[in-house]
């Protein structure tokens, strides 16, 4: 049963990877990479149960958080071209 779930998650990861390579815009690629990371978290969890060693769940937890931070950082870079940018709220406060 876990092998079916692992196969389904792997198939989804393959489809998402195709979208990440096709593009066409950078946002499509970032969305696909974010989804790939979410599927990786699921795959780690399912594989832990498949091999009878659910200790991998700590890795899944950390991977999920790092994936989120990475997505936000990449999007901030592509939106403002500057990772140190304070965002819109700061600009609104100045004016």
């Amino acid at each position: 049963m876990f092998s079916v779930a692992a196969a389904a998650v792997l198939g989804t990861m393959a489809l998402v990877l195709i979208r990440a390579m096709l593009g066409p815009t950078v946002y499509d690629r970032i969305l696909a990479v974010n989804m790939f990371g979410t599927k990786t978290v699921l795959l780690i969890a399912v594989l832990g149960f498949l091999t009878g060693r659910p200790d991998f769940l700590d890795l899944a937890l950390v991977y999920g958080l790092i994936n989120f931070i990475g997505t936000i950082a990449a999007l901030k870079f592509f939106e403002y071209s500057d990772l140190g940018h304070a965002g819109q709220d700061a600009r609104r406060g100045e004016s």
Binding site: A5, A8, V16, A32
Partner: peptide, 19 residues
């Protein structure tokens, strides 16, 4: 089992959708 199989189905659906 039902939850895991349904989850796998939804994961594949989303994969086809994003493509």
């Amino acid at each position: 089992w039902v939850a895991i199989l349904a989850g796998s189905f939804f994961a594949l659906t989303g994969g086809v959708g994003i493509l």
